[in-house]
Design a protein around this nucleic acid. Structure first.
Lengths: 218, 218
DNA sequence: GTCTATAGCAGGATAGAC
DNA sequence: GTCTATCCTGCTATAGAC
């Protein structure tokens, strides 16, 4: 079998890769198309040919790169959760923290993923619709339905959502604010520190969720 | 007593105010000087006259607006902590969450404050040196020294720092990602929801810190 | 599908009148 | 201190050759 479409669309792929990295690093407004095409080693006009304009390239980064990666993360979460029997707050927190901090992503990919997400959370654009509708809302629903059976029926689902958001905020931040956290803790983001963070978030989340079963009736 | 310096320096103040709001909302790269001077109802050249250039205006926003506000927050924290007797993990978490979520700041001021901070955490610039050196590091030291007596001597101070960072991540996020959180929870950021969030963060943090006393020796 | 060239505009910054 | 006028650079986007 020979190689099809020599370098057809390879330019498009390279642009998507470099655009994602740069948008994650600096934010949409602080990245120029020139910067992207230069990093992608292609011509300035290629962005307009393949993506119509800069704004649409940003949206496509989410559609074609970000969402599929989020799906991989969810799949990983479901697998490691299923391996632990019926879901409880404990196993859910464990599987969540592990999927998002160790998971199937490379270090760089993970940081990129959460940086893009954090930008949309802080300053939602059109891409936030994709993030919210295709990833966050369905996933939160799924988590809530997993946790609900373990909880007293008086417990409002809002309480569950807030707990989930709290775990997310930690995961997001320990991935998003790496540079700052390194400077403040004085530790590099190496394997040892990453494992330390995973352990910490799992423990903190477990304890945070811990009282959940007893809180339904006030 | 008559009013001194009629509108002297009032322009400078207006520029600082509008610049802070816009930088918080959109980020440094996405705000133009024209936008700022237009909002501040002054001439384009005023920024260069008063602040030399755009980058320096950004730094001055942190020096003149952000740091003093952070100091007000710390003062509030110390006062409400002192009112509860000797500090323990419980009282510290309580006072922290309250200072950062209810505290002395207006809603708008609080969001602005944490948005600026979050931007620097995710993508540190020169201003991060100010944030870290003048505010974060000293404050974290203070918190650690408050918590240390209550903990077994085997406990590494890193553990304490991670706990503090975790609480911060929640506070930061629930202030930073308001728009997104509103859309996902379906709730406006009104007084009721704010109180709900305060209650949740205090409880989650308390539980998260809860096991702290028992973890020193492994 | 990729290139060059360029239109057309918005950005930061400054000079100099008032 | 504040204004207008302007320079110059860098931006996005497009037209048209190859």
């Amino acid at each position: 079998m020979t190689i099809r479409k020599d370098n057809h669309d390879l330019t498009k792929e390279r642009i998507l890769n470099e655009a994602e990295a740069l948008f994650a690093q600096k934010g949409f407004g602080a990245v120029s198309v020139r910067e992207i095409t230069c990093a992608a080693n292609c011509n300035l006009a290629a962005v307009n040919y393949h993506f119509r304009n800069k704004g649409n390239l940003y949206i496509e980064v989410f559609r074609v790169r970000w969402v599929p990666r989020a799906m991989r993360l969810q799949k990983h979460f479901r697998r490691s959760l299923a391996a632990q029997g019926p879901p409880s707050p404990t196993t859910v927190a464990q599987a969540l923290a592990e999927a998002f901090l160790k998971g199937p992503l490379s270090d760089e990919e993970r940081q990129r993923h959460f940086q893009l997400m954090t930008r949309e959370l802080g300053q939602p654009t059109e891409a936030f619709e994709i993030v919210a509708d295709e990833v966050m809302r369905p996933f939160f629903e799924e988590l809530a339905s997993m946790l609900r059976p373990a909880m007293p029926k008086g417990l409002r689902s809002e309480q569950v959502l807030l707990n989930i958001l709290s775990i997310f905020s930690m995961v997001l931040y320990f991935n998003f604010a790496r540079v700052a956290i390194s400077r403040i803790t004085g530790r590099e983001y190496d394997a040892a520190f990453k494992n330390r963070l995973v352990k910490h978030i799992v423990e903190f989340s477990l304890k945070g969720l811990g009282g959940l079963e007893k809180e339904g009736l006030r």
